[in-house]
Design a protein around this nucleic acid. Structure first.
Lengths: 196, 196
DNA sequence: TGTACATCAGTGAACGCGCGTTCACTGATGTAC
DNA sequence: TGTACATCAGTGAACGCGCGTTCACTGATGTAC
């Protein structure tokens, strides 16, 4: 019943990563401290370097993990929205620009949670960041109508990321939510494919 | 010929603030260190607390200063573009989403340079941040056609901020510049008022 | 089935360093008479 | 015009603290026979 010997360390590694991926989106790169993450994962800080070569290596891996996590959530939301009769594009917009995403960055898109910090990180993190941006562009592209000009997915992604960040700066209140709602309305009017 | 007695300190204060406003946009909130800023301003760190109550007070003032600085530059660009025959809206879009703004955050818009860090700052900084967002919205509103739905300025601002941040994450290279160009083209097509 | 040994994930004390902040002091500027 | 004094912007040493990183050690898990 016990897992294979190599697995125990792997499980701990995963637990550290999940913790870091959550804290990273909540508190930013400087909010991720080695000792704090280990403590939250139920460990002491000394064991950290048996799992990661450096704090920077953790940041890069955590960013990737955060992206995979939020991407998976987003795809589930799109599927669920489609099941309720929405277009896949509308489901994406409603989910990305939802009040829930406004108030819970720790389970949301790391690009929106970290965008202005990304260009200042070390090379490993910046590479992971570009992969996350490409992945977000792919998700948007997949739900857009096929006949739009090249670069449209980038335009929509820019709108999603920018609108969410401005709404978060305005606050989790009427002002912030009004900002989100305006962005949702605009995107749907612009890109929603005509329905029967 | 000498300035009034109270002026010498004021001049030093301004010099510290200008330095901090530049470093802040380049390196983010955590990139602003008391000793480093004082040194760059040609002073020793001990004198800092004669000018600011705390590092946080400096951050809030520097954010405000950065916003005023970049707003003034943007307005000059809009006027210059108009003088060259562009619409004021096109001049704003060309300037905000320019290759120069892509590569020089330290003299650019602090909202784009800091957006994802703003919600995590202390109260004084967050208040200054909201004022900067409002100011950006005002500048956009002023150059948009009058008959657009409420919230349109917010939509455009979100696009500007998001597109610039994503381009900076992609890098100061062909990929980043292509992203900027697509956002410029989209905004002009959408909102450029018809010309004679 | 049981004993001796090897492996290895995790512990906790210690390190060097940089940071924000404090404070006694200096030296230049301006004022009183 | 000159001297004595007060003011005040800026200096530089020192502080306490938190952080990333290292390392000798522990104790549990798994293997050999």
């Amino acid at each position: 019943m016990e897992a294979a010997p190599a697995n125990r360390k792997q499980l701990t590694h995963d637990r550290i990563l999940d913790t870091a991926a959550r804290v990273l989106r909540d508190a930013g790169f400087h909010g991720v401290g080695v000792a704090d993450i280990m403590k939250r994962a139920g460990l002491t800080h000394g064991g950290f370097y048996a799992h990661f070569a450096s704090r920077d290596a953790l940041l890069a891996e955590a960013l990737e993990r955060a992206g995979q996590d939020s991407q998976a959530r987003l795809r589930r939301s799109i599927d669920a929205g489609e099941a309720r009769g929405l277009s896949r594009f509308q489901a994406l917009v409603d989910s990305y620009l939802s009040d829930r995403h406004l108030k819970s960055p720790d389970s949301g898109c790391p690009v929106a949670a970290l965008a202005s910090e990304l260009p200042r990180q070390g090379e490993a993190v910046r590479e992971a960041a570009q992969a996350r941006v490409d992945s977000l562009l792919g998700t948007v592209e997949a739900v857009l109508p096929a006949d739009l000009p090249a670069g449209t997915a980038g335009v929509v992604a820019g709108q999603l990321v920018g609108a969410l960040q401005i709404a978060r700066t305005l606050g989790d209140n009427a002002k912030g939510r009004r900002h989100l709602a305006a962005a949702r309305a605009f995107l749907l009017e612009q890109f929603e494919p005509p329905r029967h």
